[in-house]
Design a binder for these strands. Sequence first.
DNA 1: CCACCGTGGGAGAGCGCTCTCCGTCCTCGC
DNA 2: GCGAGGACGGAGAGCGCTCTCCCACGGTGG
Lengths: 348, 348
Amino acid sequence: MRRDVPPSSPTLEDVARAAGVSRATVSRVVNGIRNVDSALQESVRRAIADTGYVPNRAARSLVTRRAGSVALVVSGAGEEGAEHAFPGRVLTDPFFGRVIGGVAGFLRPRGVHPVLMFAETARARAEVLAFLRQGEADGAVLVSTHAEDPLPELLAEAGLPAALFARPARPVPISYVDVDHRAGAKLAADHLLARGRRRIGTISGPLDVPAARARLAGFRDAMAAHGHPYVPCAEGGFTYHSGEAAMERLLAEHPGLDGVFVANDLMAQGALPVLRHHGRAVPRDVGVVGFDDSSAATACRPALTTVRHPVEDMAAELARLLLEHVERPGRRPTSVIFEPALVVRDSS
Amino acid sequence: MRRDVPPSSPTLEDVARAAGVSRATVSRVVNGIRNVDSALQESVRRAIADTGYVPNRAARSLVTRRAGSVALVVSGAGEEGAEHAFPGRVLTDPFFGRVIGGVAGFLRPRGVHPVLMFAETARARAEVLAFLRQGEADGAVLVSTHAEDPLPELLAEAGLPAALFARPARPVPISYVDVDHRAGAKLAADHLLARGRRRIGTISGPLDVPAARARLAGFRDAMAAHGHPYVPCAEGGFTYHSGEAAMERLLAEHPGLDGVFVANDLMAQGALPVLRHHGRAVPRDVGVVGFDDSSAATACRPALTTVRHPVEDMAAELARLLLEHVERPGRRPTSVIFEPALVVRDSS
DNA sequence: CCACCGTGGGAGAGCGCTCTCCGTCCTCGC
DNA sequence: GCGAGGACGGAGAGCGCTCTCCCACGGTGG
């Protein structure tokens, strides 16, 4: 409509011609650098508006060697070998939603876009590496579902900018953010004891996950410090159903229980109906404390007392760490640990 | 380590030199086109392996005018004006996780990457448009949280390839996928009646959302066809808490209720404790049927009878539609409607 | 025996941008 | 009054790739 021949979008050249200046000057105005006479600047801006110019990202990337995007990798999701299954069934866990939201929230004002990737198989991991090497993304933030994920090491070896959500199981020279799980578990222990609970058990997460181990250890240490050296434990898998099953077992072995610390809210959500089913009123007979302060915590009856995990803030910091590595490639890995807080609701 | 001077990755030129052929030939091999002598092909492949070459995506995009990625836009999320808030609190809803998983699952084997974007504000919408115009993504799939979302129209006007999850409130010339909400609601009605329920109410979704309206209308029509012209309804907002509140209201006005159709699982999950709290046993006194077959359906006690919404398949189809539009820009919009199915569990 | 065609492969022109040079002009200071 | 130096803007060389030509060669039919 505006032009006759080319239906493709206007280029820097077109704008330059319209404004009567050189390409370089238009580029300077667009990128806001150096000293360009304000009158010229104005006419360039008008020409940009007139032509409807938008810079072509591919061309820019080609010369700047920056993609302006980062890979947001959900790693270790799904089963090995389930090549054609839908990935991201994990995304069903509200926890990932919060991480993604936090990362995206930090990146957005900086004009960086997150590219979603799943890396559950060896092939998928190779794709992530290729993706980064091809320069389609400047780096990767990684959130793993299980501890044995080899991707962090692969990234570190390849020298690609990356940052992790949660400390890796084996030490890897890579930046990460995490919460102080031990301190959070101590908060839960202190709270249950303060409420007068004395026969306290715990439902842990899968013990190959460092976070789950740390929560259990922290809880036991805190209990021991208060003179409770033995704390019965049932291991769960961080899912609703594993929470149910673990609660059944714990209750069968320790019917006299009057308090439970559950290592995440989803499992606690599963534990509540089991307690009710066995005639235990919560919080009257048994006090329950979860971990994460996820949406599950308020989608329970009674609403869950829980340990707040500042997931969004952590995810934002995660993104910040990554961008720092992208900015200055040589940088040494750093880790940032966040403090948890107790949120008291109705279940304790 | 391998080379002395350039630490940057090898280019087509380097590979060509190593294989003793021209750039063009290497390009042909890489892209698997035209007829290249198999001996040459072999030596080129070896050279690629030796140099560790990976094609530079920006350079390729520059000439092919294809980004190889699409925008996955969550639209209408969060409140207008909450500029600095974390976006994607919606991601907490497992429904979005399923959509994202389905889209990603389809795109992945095709080498297309989804770029996550949020478009809750006018500014964010402008960014999405600019993103597409800049050629950073070849098109957009859109999943909206509310009906008044202006983004579909903006995309259609701009002639950018796009596809929607769920039919837009106002007709827009754009492809979409949806489920047959009316048929799903009829399934629920038939089932409740078949189980002998006679005093049946419903909790609807927000009535400005077309899907919510269609479910309500379908339910009422099916009930009317069976001789139940009046069906009491309480409007909810598709969230856990709105489900609780709606159930309270419905029960207050119609204490004799023996069946409820709830327009999504999350609200049904909220409704169950309310029924229990008011002394109604589920399913003995009241039968409950949800909608979606989300993870919430199995994370309830009793487990929820619900209408299965094949979200992953729909999302895959959504991605397919988009890619079709990217492939052949002139294509007319099409819509694909999926059939729902009843999943009987314990709540009815 | 020559015109013709099909096939394999090279040369080279860009794609749209950034950025380094370098030239021009204007303003001071001595 | 003249040279130094700063401010401004243009020319042009690429970034790494694709793809259109075009050439060379061998086989075929008239």
